[in-house]
Design a protein around this nucleic acid. Structure first.
Length: 533
RNA sequence: GCCUCCGUAGCUCAGUUGGAUAGAGCAGGGAACUUCUAAUUCCAAGGUCGCAGGUUCGAUUCCUGCCGGAGGCGCCA
């Protein structure tokens, strides 16, 4: 990697001018291309400690590096307050193409920052008594892409869905189903949604409404998620913890560690010990568990299976972060081992008009309806285009239009164009030769170099996206790559008048590398790579 | 009152451990198809990065305080 060559050269240069090199030398890509291909701020960062003027230190480094040119470097200069700027020969980009071609989609931009550590990503975890709705969709698409990113950077990822399959809400669900089956209205506080009527009609007469309904809801969840390419490794049942006794174990452990106490007939978690503003009830005075007790037992169980847990919660649950972390600390776990990621709400609109998500009970837009409307790829991409830290507004009418103002098609269109170009080349007798027989130095057009430059940034982009848990970075990057490709496509014919065989070969390999980079993005985002549109 | 997130171009949003002249898409203005998909490309225009301090060689980025918006604060789940 060229960055390794440059940082090692800078390190040598620092030593040569009598400055201790820092442990890590920062290299960045200047925003302005006139500042070169790579830039380092080491002179600014170390000058103070070394008691030198940053600009003079930078100049000394440049003098040394000029006399000891690192590979690929064609120019070195000091700029501004003391930046050291490197200009590279185009051959470094040709080498990028070779690397990408050799690594392929499986290995290009695959990192090992995770080092094989097990990580558990729990998301969606919707109650198994209603179909998934639009509000679950953001967390579902986000969680799955975060899992894909973590997998790509070397973690051993488990995708997990927690099932709240016991308690009052399941009882009410069963009673609502049974009532609809008899042609009656659901009971007070029951489920009013139209789906209850549909499901009741499907339910056999002799079925146990709770068990049948539970299975029905679970099947619905699996099917919906599967439509957008989301599969879970573990479906963890809350009920199973009652049967196995782990809830009692967790409660006993808290009591033993004096992290719980009994007052007013209820059992309380001492969450204030770890920053909560009040203690929280685990067992109510009537002996029933609150939601918290099974949740604590559940996270305790997850920690026994993986050292690192990620939970993806909707914004309406952020208030529970503190108490859950408190409970894990009370049990002796590292609070940083549990990472809770919050997704902000999504507003749906149609032609600028708001679609109410929480009107009367059961009145909602289902996840399935969205997939029906815009298809699985657009569904995933529209949720992943934007940071989950911001409240998102999605206009279903605008997003379902297959028109120029829909950014979702832009990237897939690049993929389709590449395939059609390759097909056209083959029809005209140009098949790609082995890379070793192709002279990549013919790739000198600005569009070609820009495209390669874009491709070269994918590994660092994946690294950043994985660290920040931000798949939207990948979505944004894929758009930039597509833009670089469309520019190339516009100005550079792969086959045609005035294009030599050598140039056709080089460009065919450039297309291949672009496809590889796109494939990595599509995989991380969980969308398909269409060969024609 | 406390907690979380947000405030960047007319609109929707990016902005990588703090870095040089803050970027894209859309909308609006002007161009480009005898050859691989015009779902494209190119040019111009568009900014008090909510406000005020602080830290720093350097702040959209970090810290504090305000202002504005959204959501959450149960012996409900």
């Amino acid at each position: 990697m060229v960055t390794e060559i440059l940082s090692s050269a800078l390190s040598d240069a620092l030593s040569a001018v009598g400055v201790d090199p820092p442990a890590e030398i920062q290299l960045e890509r200047p925003a302005n291309r006139e500042h070169g291909d790579w830039s380092s701020n080491v002179a600014l960062a170390t000058a103070k400690m070394a008691g030198k003027n940053p600009r003079e230190l930078g100049t000394a480094l440049v003098d040394y590096l000029d006399a000891n040119r690192p590979e690929y470097v064609s120019g070195i200069s000091v700029a501004g307050p003391g930046f050291v700027n490197f200009t590279l020969d185009d051959s470094w980009l040709h080498q990028v193409l070779v690397d990408v071609a050799e690594q392929g989609a499986d290995n290009f931009a695959r990192l090992d920052t995770g080092g094989g550590q097990a990580i558990n990503v729990e998301f969606v975890s919707a109650n198994p008594n209603k179909p998934l709705h639009a509000g679950h969709a953001r967390g579902a698409c986000y969680g799955d892409s975060v899992a894909r990113l973590l997998d790509r950077v070397g973690y051993q990822v488990t995708r997990e869905f927690y099932l709240n399959d016991r308690g009052v809400q399941m009882q009410l669900f069963a009673e609502s189903l049974a009532a609809r089956k008899r042609g009656e209205e659901p009971p007070e506080g029951g489920y009013q949604g139209a789906y209850i009527i549909d499901w009741a009609a499907e339910m056999p007469d002799d079925a146990d409404p709770l068990e049948w309904g539970y299975a029905r809801a679970l099947a619905s969840h699996r099917e919906t998620l599967s439509r957008v390419g989301i599969e879970f490794d573990v479906w963890f049942s809350e009920r199973s913890m009652v049967a196995s006794g782990v809830i009692d174990e967790a409660l006993a452990e808290l009591a033993e560690k004096n992290m719980s106490f009994v007052e007013d007939g209820a059992t309380w978690l001492r969450s204030t010990e770890y920053g909560d503003d009040k203690d929280r009830v685990l067992v109510k005075s009537d002996g029933e568990l609150t939601y918290l007790a099974p949740d604590v037992a559940y996270h305790r169980d997850k920690f026994s299976r993986a050292p690192k847990l990620i939970n993806i919660w909707g914004a309406d649950h952020h208030g529970y972060m503190v108490r859950m972390k408190a409970a894990m600390q009370a049990l002796g776990h590292d609070p940083d081992g549990l990472e809770i990621l919050i997704t902000q709400l999504v507003d749906l609109e149609r032609d600028g008009e708001a679609i109410r998500m929480a009107g009367r009970a059961g009145d909602f837009v289902s996840f399935d309806e969205i997939i029906d409307m815009v298809g699985p790829d657009v569904t995933r991409l529209m949720y992943l285009m934007q940071s989950v830290d911001t409240r998102q507004t999605i206009d279903l009418a605008a997003v379902s239009k297959k028109a120029a103002d829909n950014p979702v098609f832009y990237v897939q269109y690049a993929n389709a164009r590449i395939h059609s170009t390759i097909k056209n080349a083959e029809e005209k007798g140009h098949t790609r030769k082995p890379l070793a027989e192709v002279d990549l130095s013919v790739l000198t057009h600005d569009r070609e170099l820009d495209l390669l430059r874009a491709i070269s940034t994918l590994p660092e982009t994946v690294d950043h996206a994985a660290r920040e848990r931000s798949p939207h970075t990948i979505a944004a990057w894929s758009r930039e790559l597509a833009a670089a490709f469309h520019g190339f496509y516009h100005d550079c014919y792969v086959v045609g008048d005035g294009v030599s065989d050598e140039l056709t070969q080089g460009r065919l390999w450039l297309l291949e590398a672009t496809l590889t980079a796109l494939a990595v993005c599509f995989d991380l985002l969980g969308v398909s790579a269409p060969e024609s549109m």
